[in-house]
Design a protein around this nucleic acid. Structure first.
Length: 910
RNA sequence: GGACCCUUAGCUCAGUUGGUUAGAGCGUUUCCUUGACAUGGAAAAGGUCACUGGUUCGAGUCCAGUAGGGUCCACCA
């Protein structure tokens, strides 16, 4: 073995192993007969994306799952890829063009798309490279892109299929229009934001009775030119007699508009009268439909006011128009009042500007398989972790609306619909849509393309990503599916994602899987995944969401440079409890790095402690153990190793990854390094105990490396080889992680049975040492190693202490530990293994020592009172389980004994 | 307006079916460069588990309510 360096330097190690893994195609997902499959599809990051802390968390978790699966002997597959991200990507490329004072229209559709593809080939792989730095063990040979030819085929054939089934239709409806991106958005892409605006109180004069006014409140006076009615509630006594009369529009082209009655009006709100502007409000649109009102659209697609807004307003940008409308109203005496007003406004998630409700022709999808999608989750075929998200999911499905799947973009899957030349696509009825002489819908397009014009719109990006779990496995092409082993790997085992895309993505994938996969087969064969793990959202130290605009998101690559990928992984997982948001603290990442260094040095200590034995397999190490020479520490560390193995296993079944990390941290740092390695220093001095001690270290380190590997893959791979656990040319993941009972059984076969009582005795020995150290520190002797310690102990306690004295002397930092029948006047501590004294009677500050003992007695008295009260309670004795009562009795006895001893010490001081 | 979540040490958070004296990391104080590690070791200080009631022999844990914080959903102009 080459000597291990003094501190862990991640950079070279990470580079070396990632290259080796990749060269060996170590992460290739393969069909392995007899092996259980374990598959994950990555939530595809936007092709424009760069790695964020959210990606780090999300992908580290996925990597942990697949690496653990490999160690458990499963055949794991993690499919990577990226999403073409329609609006986001088109925006990025358009922004570049704008720098050269060009727009996409200067290029035309075809040449613009060439530009986007160029961009994607140049920069679209960045995030995947970054995932490699993180250690992601994806099967890179299977990298997917939602615009790959085979993937596009899946997307389009789904459109054709759903259209054929009547699930897809074209309709003129109110949509969320983004005046910047110039496209429709789905409801899910609109986020509500509180906005401080102005409420205008506007009066409309009666046309038949000048001087009489009806007053309404509005936040959007610029839409008044689009008003076609005033609505009141039919039961509103204030306006009885007004219904059917007409009022004058105060601004815009002059017109008389009717007062109508509609129950949609809220009697309580404002004046009880509502202006109806069907072109610019969803609710108004519905009122307009009910009353057969005209629709006056006063806005252009880009959000400027058009000529229908009338002179003074036409041509203005919408917010300038709002201000101007207010002024015009004032000039005309129609503005009764204006007041500051806070309300919620829908914003385009991508462009971050208020959306406009706008009436346009769009393609809509009636979701398939809604009921089955509910059943799949409600009946536990798909398990959500944490479970509570299933309520959010079900609630959304209860209230689901048709999905607007068309986007007025160029970058995306162009809708496979062709209109016969000469046909006015905006006058097509539902029946016309299904008339193949007017509309052609197919994957291949019409055979006489010269007679047809293709739809301009592309599909919503999510209308491609909802197919991800199976379109990444070759669907719908039979040969490709065969090659991708979809039969083996589908349904995928676990999906790891954020709860923020539960509607965008998770729910839709479930419906898609149910609809398209394995028709006719049982539900559990069609679902896209069996588990969904929802991560928390990473926030900054102040609890704010991380975002580009706030600039509060640390660059993961900087963190990797600083702390190593393993350090970053360990740190982020340790602060990510299940289901809660995560407050990012860099010191925890530093803690991850420190842990790696600790691991490194423990292995280094092992290496310089003695020649390696045969470490080539679990059996080989077990053969080297000498059960006859086991002391309490040997039993205890192996027992703790097994209980930690069990605990980590439990954590994986419960998706409690931070708990697993904490268990491993505590075991390795506290039990192994702080105690076992330290007591080893005594054991290694003696030829008699050395070989067994080294074998135990080898066993513990091996198991620890295996347990830690999914979390910190690089350093564990390196140490695995440094300590000779695996042959050259093989990787740690080719080894099997045995579970606790397998290890115990194998060890038993080698003549080793662990003594559980040893664990308890070691706890008492630790306490003895710790109190002896405290005693020294109390008397400012912490750094002295020549102090003699005296002990008074029962024979039983001494029987525990005596065989461990050499170690205890070293651990306590004493010159010697000697048993006495009685010690008077020396400072002392009462431990679970007798009372330990400093042999410095003359140097004692009697007053201070008495005070200390007094304080300890007072605290003990409180505890004794508590225990006694409990035991004295008849109801407790009657109803509590025997084990609890026995425990309390035993505790009381110990407390009494301790009190007696403390009192004796106190008396001895005079 | 509806749903869900959170409130535990100075800070950030664990706390798994209710059961000995409520834990961790960081920070703080004191001591230690002892031959794995100062990215380290030892010891210590620090908490009426938001509040009020209830259930129970027993509540940080279960129930109800109150206060504060957060997230999601919802067409109140």
């Amino acid at each position: 073995m080459a000597e291990i360096s003094k501190s862990y330097e991640p950079r070279d190690v990470e580079k070396k192993w990632y290259a080796a893994w990749q060269a060996a195609h170590a992460f290739a997902g393969k069909v392995a007969p007899g092996k259980e499959p374990y598959s994950i599809v990555i939530p595809p990051p936007n092709v424009t994306g760069v790695l964020t802390m959210g990606h780090v968390l999300n992908n580290t978790l996925q990597d942990i799952l697949v690496r653990r699966a490999r160690l458990e002997g499963k055949s794991a597959l993690w499919i990577p890829g990226t999403d073409h991200a329609g609006i986001a990507t088109q925006t990025v490329v358009e922004r570049e063009l704008r720098k050269q004072k060009q727009t996409r229209h200067d290029f035309g559709r075809e040449r613009f798309l060439e530009r986007v593809w160029e961009w994607r080939h140049e920069k679209g792989g960045i995030i995947l490279e970054q995932l490699r730095r993180l250690g992601a063990s994806c099967d890179w040979d299977r990298t997917q892109f939602t615009m790959d030819p085979h993937y596009s085929k899946a997307v389009l054939s789904v459109f054709v299929d759903l259209f054929g089934q009547g699930h897809i239709y074209r309709g003129k409806r109110m949509v969320n229009w983004c005046p910047v991106s110039l496209t429709a958005l789905s409801d899910e892409e609109v986020i509500m934001k509180p906005v401080n605006g102005t409420m205008y109180h506007v009066r409309y004069e009666r046309a038949d009775a000048p001087g009489q006014f009806i007053e309404v409140k509005t936040t959007r006076p610029e839409t008044i030119p689009g008003d076609v009615a005033i609505a009141v509630h039919p039961n509103d006594p204030r306006y009885a007699g007004w219904v059917g009369k007409k009022v004058r529009r105060p601004i815009g082209p002059s017109a008389e508009i009717p007062i109508i009655a509609d129950t949609a009006v809220d009697l309580e709100f404002g004046t009880g009268a509502l202006k109806i502007t069907p072109a610019h409000d969803k609710a108004d649109f519905e009122v307009g439909q009910r009353h057969n009102l005209p629709i006056i659209d006063v806005l252009n697609a880009n959000g400027t006011l058009n000529e229908l807004a009338g002179p003074g307003l036409a041509g203005l940008e919408r917010f300038a128009g709002r201000k101007k409308a207010g002024e015009l109203l004032k000039e005309r005496g129609a503005l009764v009042a204006e007041e500051p007003y806070a309300n919620n406004v829908g914003y385009s998630e991508r462009a971050d500007v208020p959306i406009e409700p706008r009436l346009t022709w769009q393609w809509w999808l009636r979701y398939p398989r809604i009921e089955e999608a509910k059943t799949a989750v409600r009946d536990g075929h798909i398990k959500f972790h944490p479970e509570r998200w299933s309520k959010v999911y079900l609630h959304w499905l209860e209230n689901i609306q048709d999905w607007c799947i068309s986007r007025q973009l160029w970058w995306g899957h162009r809708i496979p619909v062709w209109y016969r030349k000469g046909v006015d696509r905006d006058r097509l009825t539902e029946a016309d849509l299904r008339d193949s002489t007017k509309v052609h819908v197919s994957l291949e397009g019409p055979s006489d393309p010269e007679n047809w014009v293709q739809e301009d719109d592309v599909l919503d990006t999510w209308a491609s990503s909802w197919l991800w779990p199976f379109a990444t496995m070759g669907w719908p092409d039979t040969a490709a599916m065969e090659q991708a082993a979809i039969n083996y790997f589908y349904p995928t085992t676990t999906l790891v994602t954020g709860p923020d895309i539960i509607f965008f993505w998770v729910a839709r994938m479930i419906m898609a899987g149910l609809e398209f996969m394995r028709p006719g087969e049982p539900l559990e064969r069609r679902i896209p995944f069996k588990n969904v793990y929802f991560t928390g959202i990473i926030r900054d130290a102040q609890g704010r969401k991380m975002s580009k605009s706030l600039g509060n998101s640390p660059d993961p690559l900087v963190l990797i440079d600083k702390y190593g990928a393993d350090g970053l992984r360990f740190g982020i997982i340790s602060i990510a409890p299940q289901g809660q948001d995560i407050r990012f603290q860099e010191d925890r990442i530093e803690g991850g790095k420190n842990f790696c260094n600790k691991l490194w040095n423990a292995c280094r200590f092992r290496q310089i402690s003695g020649e390696a034995g045969d470490n080539s397999s679990l059996n080989a190490i077990l053969t080297r153990l000498e059960p006859a020479k086991f002391d309490a520490d040997d039993h205890a560390i192996l027992d703790r190793m097994l209980s930690t193995t069990r605990e980590v296993n439990r954590c994986f079944t419960e998706f409690e990854f931070s708990a697993a990390v904490q268990a491993l941290y505590a075991f390795f740092w506290n039990d192994f390094c702080d105690w076992y390695v330290e007591v080893s220093k005594s054991k290694l001095q003696s030829a008699d105990t050395k070989r067994n001690c080294l074998a135990i270290q080898d066993l513990v380190l091996r198991q620890t490396l295996l347990l830690l590997h999914p979390f910190i893959p690089f350093i564990t791979e390196e140490l695995w080889h440094q300590l000779g656990y695996g042959p050259e040319g093989h990787f740690i993941e080719e080894a099997r992680l045995e579970n606790a009972s397998q290890v115990a059984t194998t060890a038993h076969g080698r003549g080793l049975t662990l003594d559980r009582a040893a664990v308890a005795s070691v706890e008492r020995l630790k306490s003895f040492v710790s109190q002896a150290r405290a005693l020294k520190a109390e008397h400012n002797l912490a750094s002295r190693r020549d102090v003699k310690l005296l002990v008074t102990a029962t024979d039983a306690d001494w029987a525990v202490l005596e065989p461990n004295l050499t170690k205890l002397v070293r651990m306590a930092g004493a010159a010697e530990i000697t048993r006495r029948d009685r010690v008077d006047g020396a400072p002392a501590m009462v431990t679970p293994l007798g009372t330990v004294y400093l042999d410095l009677a003359s140097a004692v500050d009697v007053g201070a020592e008495k005070q200390r003992l007094q304080k300890e007695l007072e605290q003990l008295a409180k505890h004794i009172a508590g225990t006694e009260a409990r035991l004295a309670n008849k109801a407790f004795a009657d109803k509590a389980p025997a084990a609890v009562i026995d425990g309390a009795k035993k505790q009381l006895a110990e407390q009494h004994a301790k009190r007696t001893e403390l009192e004796r010490l106190l008396n001895a001081l005079g």
